[in-house]
Amino acid sequence: MAGHSATEEKLDHLQHHFIDSDQQFEASKMGMWIFLVTEILFFGGLFVAYIVYRAWYPDLYLLASEQLDTFWGAVNTFVLIGSSLTVAMAIRSAQLNQIKGLIINLWITIGLACVFMVIKYFEYAEKFAKGILPGSYYSYEGVAHEKANIFFSIYYMMTGLHGVHVIIGIGLMLWLVYKAKKKVFHSGYYTPVEITGLYWHLVDIIWIFLFPLLYLID
């Protein structure tokens, strides 16, 4: 949804079918909010599966969540909330025409997102080593429940899909850095930064729910 390729003209981002910058900005932002609605319902399906199975087999969730490390889950929560903060700072920088600040904040966010993925990688690797593999490859004996495979299927689907969203977010922010370095953004035009930020916050919100639902079952 970015404008035409950058030249020195300040209004080059304005597409011909919009009346002015404000209309374009509002339209893009509304479009993004509607897209976020679809994301919420997309994950919503998984949450439904989670809730239905939790209502059926509460003891399964108690037993199986012991295999998840609360400490690393909490660390990842901090990491993602931190990255949300830096994205908000990045948008603020763009609004104030501080392109350097924008780029620095985006880099910090990308860094935090990578930390999140690395921690996720070690969590997955530790489970794979134990035989907690997704679906029919599940072979771990340590959870005394016949439906243990289903809990971990749900776990892998939820965190996996969330992870994919984090990776997409990293890609989007690398693109923003590239654009920012080409001086595309300024206080009059930062729509891509704003809507990527919205996306990133939603990824954060989903994790805010995943963390207690998966890790914090006592």
Binding site: G44, G45, Y53, G135, S136, Y137, S153, I154, Y156, M157
Partner: peptide, 16 residues
């Protein structure tokens, strides 16, 4: 999400 889960059901046997 339904079709994704169905695909995973065939690919990995997630069992949901």
């Amino acid at each position: 999400i339904t079709l994704l889960l169905l695909t995973m059901e065939r690919l990995l046997g997630i069992g949901i």
